[in-house]
Nucleic acid binder design. Structure first.
Length: 800
RNA sequence: GGGAGUUUAGCUCAGCUGGUUCAGAGCAUCUGCCUUACAAGCAGAGGGUCACUGGUUCGAAACCAGUAACUCCCA
C-alpha cells in the first residue's frame, strides 16, 4: 500500500507508520471478513476482535510483566537469524533453506613460529618459510572475526599444532589453535576456523572454549570497523574482494565448487545472517511440560492423530522463544531503559519511573525524560497465544460471563504448519493463565494445493479468488467443492471441477424442490406408496447414523459424500421416481405430506454443507407453510434414532437390482424406455414380489408382472439372488447366444464354488477359522449351488 | 545426516481388530437417451498384479522385514 502511494517507510515516524498499518488492516481485514460472510460462515459478526485492539494489547503487556516477574522473560545475547534487508531477527521457522551452489575457499593460515614472534621479525618472507595450516570455508569475508582454529585432538596430521597459535591472513591477528572432537577429521582439511559471532555452531564452540566474540558485521550486512579491512563493503562484495586479496597475499590455496544449504528470509528472500544480538526471550521448558501432557493424556485431541508425534518431538526439544521483533507494528515491549543502560519493566512510563527511583537511590531522582522505552515489539504469536482468553477479556475480568461460557471451547480448526507457533502456545498460555486447556479438539486442515500439488501462492498466481469462485459456482457450490477434496489431515488438491460438482449438486436439490412443489394433491386418492415411504424413512435414518458417525470422527468429506448420495441417489433417483405421479396427475395426501417432511429432513442434513440454498428453500411458505420467526433451518433438529427396517432395506436392494437388470436389457437390446415390457418372476426366495409390484412396473416400465411357477420359454432371462426373471421379447431369442451366456455364468460360479470348497475342505481352515466365518463360507457354497442348478435347468430348457 | 508420513481405478481418496462391506466411492471416460423436476440431466457399462521383493498365516490391500519413489519436520 505504501509502495503504491510512493511512500517509503524511512520517511515515516513510528506513529505515522502505525496509522498507515491500521488503515491497511481495516481494508484487508474487512475483505477477509466479507469473504467469510459470503461463504456462509456463521459467526457473531457484531463482535469481531483483533489482537491489536486495546484490551487485547493490554493483555499482552500484562502477560509480559507477569512472565518477567516469574523470571521467565530475560534479555540475552543470542545467535539469531538476522535478515539484513529487513533489519530484523526472524524465527527459525521463517527461514527457508535452499541448496545453493557456492565456492569453498581453502585459505592458508600461518602457524606462529614462537621464535619469530619473540624477535618480531614477521615479514611476508618469514611467513612464507613458516608452517601453514589450511582451512576451508564458504565465507572468507568472516576470517577477520575468527577467534580460533579448531582441530580434532585425535587427528594425527596435526599433532604438531597442539598448543600453537595461528595468524589470520591479511590482518595478522594471532589466534589460538584449540582442540575439540567436534571437528570432523575427514571434512574439508580437518582444520576449522572458529567464528563465534557469525556461526551458530562456532558460537557454541566459542562459549565452550571461552573465546572472544568479534562481530564484524553491521545490521545491514556491511562490514564494520572490527573487520579492519574492507570496512563498509557489503558481505557479498567483501567475499569477492577478499578472495582477490588472499590470492595476492598467497594465502589462497584453492577454490572448489560446493553445494550447501543456505537460509533465506521468507519475507525478503535475503540470505540470513547468523548474528549475535540482544533479544528478549521467554523460557519455555516449564510451560512446555504441561502443554505436552494435555495432548499425551488425551485431554486435547489432535485430529488426525499423526500430529501427536510431531507435537511431542517439538515439545520435548523446545527452545526458548525469542519474542522480540525489530518492527513497529505490534505491541511495544514494556521495558524502559535508564541512562545508565539498566532497565525496568512496567506497564506505563510513570510506573517505570517510580520503580526506577525506588531501585536506585541517588541525590537527583530520574525524570520521565530519562526513560526510553524499548523500540522492539513482541512477536506476533506473543499476542496470538493469548487469544482464547484475551478475546473474551479474560485477563482483565477473569470471571466474566463470556469467558465462563466460551472457555474452554470444543474445537479449534487450524493449519498444521502453525501447530507449534500458535496451537502449542495457546495450550501453554491456557494452562499458565487459567489452569485449563483452551480447547478439547484441534482439527488440522490440509494445506490447499493446486491440482499439480503446489502450494497456493501469490507468486505462482495459482490461488483462486474466493469471490470469483462464488460468483461462478455459488457459495454453496464452492463450499461443497472445498469439502469434497478435504479428506481429514491431508493436503487438499484443489481443482475448480470440485466446485462445479458442488454447483451441480445445488442444482439437483433445487430441481427436486421444483418437482415436489409442482404437485397437486387429490385428497380422494389412496396412498399406493406405503412401501416407498417406509423404505425411504428407513434409508434416511440409516444414512443419518452414518453421517453423524462421520462427523464425530471429523471425516467431513465422507459425511458430505454420504449426504450427497442420500440426496442424489436415494431421494432423487429412487424415492422421487417411485412416488412421482404421472404427468399432470395429482398425488395423494399422505404421500405428499410424508414427502414434504422427508424434504425438510433432507434440508436439515444438507444445511451445514449448503447453508444458503437450504435456508432459502426452508422458508418457502407455499411448500412448507408459514414458519414462525425463529424457525430456521440452521437451528432445526434432526430426527435421530428413527427406526430402521433392515429387512425392507435389503428387499428394496433386490428390487433395485431387478430394475437395473431390466434397464440393462433395454440398453443392450436397444429397446426404448417408452416401450412397456412384460415381466414374469419365478421366485425361489422369500421376497414377496407382488408387494413390490408397483415399484417395479413404474421404474422399469413393465406392463404386467406375473408370478409363475415354471420357466418361461423363449424369453430373455436373468437371475437376481436366486429368483428367476423372464422377459418375452418380440424378436426371437438366439438360443445359442443365450446358452453361451448361461455357460459363461456357470463357469464363473464353478470357479467360485471351487475356491469355497477348497477352503471348506482345508482341515486347518476348519479348525482355525472363527465359526461365523465358516458359516459364511457354507452359505456361499449353498447359494452358488442353488444358482448352478437354476442355470443347468435353463440350459436344459434351451436344448429342448 | 536424524525422525515422521505416504504409495489402492485416469484423478482425488475410503478400506477399523487379517476372513461378505473386499477389491470400493465420487469425479472423469465410454455407450444410449432432448423420457414434461433437472443435458449443470437420465439410464447403463468398462477401468486396479492394492509401489516392488520376500516372510508370518489355513487365509494378506491390511501384520513383519527389505527395496524404490514422493512429501513433511529437524540438523
Amino acid at each position: 500500500m505504501l509502495k503504491e502511494r510512493g511512500i517509503s517507510k524511512k520517511d515515516l515516524s513510528r506513529k505515522e507508520f502505525l496509522d498507515y498499518a491500521w488503515e491497511w488492516k481495516e481494508k484487508y481485514g474487512g475483505i477477509i471478513l466479507e469473504q467469510l460472510k459470503k461463504l456462509g460462515a456463521s459467526c457473531d459478526w457484531d463482535r469481531t476482535r483483533f489482537t491489536m485492539d486495546e484490551e487485547l494489547s493490554e493483555a499482552v503487556i500484562d502477560t509480559f510483566i507477569h512472565l518477567y516477574k516469574k523470571g521467565w522473560i530475560y534479555r540475552g545475547v543470542r545467535m539469531v537469524n538476522w535478515d539484513p534487508q529487513g533489519k530484523t531477527a526472524v524465527s527459525d521457522e521463517e527461514v527457508i533453506r535452499k541448496e545453493v551452489n557456492q565456492k569453498l575457499y581453502y585459505i592458508r593460515y600461518a602457524v606462529v613460529n614462537s621464535e619469530l614472534v619473540k624477535t618480531k621479525e614477521i615479514t611476508p618472507h618469514s611467513l612464507l618459510t613458516t608452517n601453514y595450516l589450511t582451512i576451508a570455508t564458504t565465507r572468507p569475508e568472516t576470517i577477520m572475526a575468527d577467534a580460533a582454529i579448531c582441530i580434532n585432538p585425535n587427528d594425527e596430521r596435526y599433532f604438531h599444532l597442539h598448543g600453537k597459535k595461528a595468524l589470520i591472513p591479511l590482518i595478522n591477528r594471532e589466534i589460538p589453535i584449540i582442540l575439540d572432537e567436534y571437528v570432523t577429521m575427514d571434512f574439508g582439511t580437518g582444520c576449522l576456523k572458529v567464528t563465534p559471532a557469525h556461526d551458530l555452531n562456532d558460537y557454541e564452540l566459542g562459549q565452550k572454549h571461552l573465546l572472544p566474540v568479534i562481530d564484524i558485521l553491521n545490521d545491514d550486512g556491511t562490514l564494520n570497523e572490527n573487520a579492519q579491512i574492507l570496512v563498509g563493503e557489503d558481505r557479498f562484495a567483501a567475499r569477492k574482494k577478499i578472495a582477490v586479496l588472499l590470492e595476492e597475499a598467497g594465502a589462497l590455496a584453492k577454490v572448489e565448487e560446493y553445494k550447501s544449504q543456505v537460509g533465506f528470509s521468507e519475507r525478503t528472500n535475503a540470505v540470513i545472517e547468523p548474528k549475535l544480538s540482544m533479544q528478549w526471550f521467554c523460557k519455555m521448558d516449564e510451560m512446555a511440560k504441561p502443554a505436552l501432557d494435555y495432548v499425551l493424556n488425551g485431554e486435547i485431541k489432535l485430529i488426525p492423530e499423526k500430529f501427536i508425534n510431531t507435537y511431542r518431538y517439538w515439545m520435548e526439544n523446545v527452545k526458548d522463544w525469542c519474542i522480540s521483533r525489530q518492527l513497529w507494528w505490534g505491541q511495544q515491549i514494556p521495558a524502559y531503559y535508564l541512562p545508565n543502560g539498566a532497565y525496568v519493566i512496567a506497564k506505563t512510563k510513570e510506573e517505570a519511573l517510580e520503580q526506577a527511583n525506588k531501585l536506585i537511590t541517588t541525590t537527583s531522582p530520574f525524570t520521565i525524560d530519562d526513560l526510553k522505552q524499548e523500540e522492539d515489539v513482541v512477536d506476533t504469536w506473543f499476542s496470538s497465544w493469548l487469544w482464547p482468553i484475551s478475546v473474551f477479556d479474560g485477563f482483565k475480568d477473569p470471571d466474566n460471563a463470556d469467558i465462563n461460557y466460551y472457555y474452554p471451547t470444543n474445537d479449534l480448526v487450524t493449519a498444521p504448519e502453525i501447530l507449534f507457533f500458535w496451537v502449542a502456545r495457546m495450550i501453554m498460555a491456557g494452562h499458565e493463565f487459567r489452569g485449563q486447556a483452551p480447547f478439547k479438539n484441534v482439527y488440522l486442515t490440509g494445506i490447499v494445493r493446486d491440482k499439480l500439488g503446489r502450494k497456493m501462492s501469490k507468486s505462482l498466481g495459482n490461488s483462486p479468488d474466493p469471490l470469483e469462485l462464488i460468483e461462478k459456482y455459488g457459495a454453496d457450490g464452492v463450499r461443497v467443492g472445498m469439502l469434497l477434496c478435504s479428506p481429514a489431515g491431508n493436503d487438499l488438491m484443489f481443482d475448480e471441477s470440485y466446485c462445479e460438482q458442488g454447483r451441480n449438486f445445488a442444482n439437483k436439490v433445487w430441481n427436486a424442490f421444483r418437482l415436489v412443489k409442482g404437485w397437486e394433491v387429490d385428497t380422494n386418492l389412496p396412498n399406493n406408496n406405503q412401501i416407498a415411504i417406509e423404505w425411504f424413512d428407513s434409508r434416511f435414518n440409516q444414512a443419518l447414523t452414518e453421517i453423524e458417525d462421520n462427523f464425530t470422527q471429523y471425516r467431513l468429506s465422507e459425511a458430505l459424500m454420504a449426504t450427497y448420495k442420500l440426496v442424489w441417489d436415494d431421494f432423487c433417483a429412487w424415492y422421487l421416481e417411485m412416488i412421482k405421479p404421472a404427468y399432470q396427475q395429482p398425488i395423494d395426501q399422505e404421500t405428499y405430506a410424508r414427502t414434504i417432511s422427508f424434504f425438510e429432513n433432507i434440508l436439515k442434513v444438507l444445511h451445514p454443507f449448503m447453508p444458503f440454498i437450504t435456508e432459502e428453500l426452508w422458508h418457502d411458505d407455499e411448500l412448507f407453510g408459514a414458519r414462525a420467526d425463529k424457525d430456521c433451518c440452521i437451528v432445526a433438529r434432526l430426527p435421530y434414532n428413527g427406526e430402521v427396517n433392515t429387512q425392507l432395506l435389503l428387499d428394496v436392494e433386490i428390487i433395485k437390482q431387478v430394475v437395473t437388470q431390466i434397464r440393462n436389457i433395454r440398453n443392450t437390446k436397444q429397446i426404448s424406455p417408452k416401450e412397456a415390457l412384460q415381466l414374469s418372476v419365478k421366485p425361489n426366495s422369500s421376497i414377496n414380489y407382488s408387494q413390490h409390484q408397483l415399484i417395479i412396473t413404474k421404474l422399469a416400465n413393465i406392463s404386467e408382472l406375473n408370478l409363475v411357477n415354471d420357466k418361461v420359454n423363449g424369453a430373455m432371462s436373468f437371475l437376481v439372488a436366486t429368483d428367476e426373471f423372464f422377459i418375452p421379447l418380440n424378436e426371437s431369442l438366439d438360443p445359442l447366444a443365450e446358452a453361451e451366456r448361461l455357460k459363461k455364468e456357470k463357469e464363473y460360479l464353478n470357479g467360485f464354488l471351487k475356491s469355497v470348497n477348497a477352503k471348506l475342505s482345508n482341515e486347518r481352515f476348519m479348525s482355525n477359522a472363527k465359526p461365523e466365518i465358516i458359516e459364511i463360507e457354507l452359505k456361499k457354497k449353498t447359494d452358488a449351488e442353488a444358482k448352478l442348478r437354476i442355470l443347468d435347468d435353463g440350459l436344459a430348457a434351451l436344448e429342448n
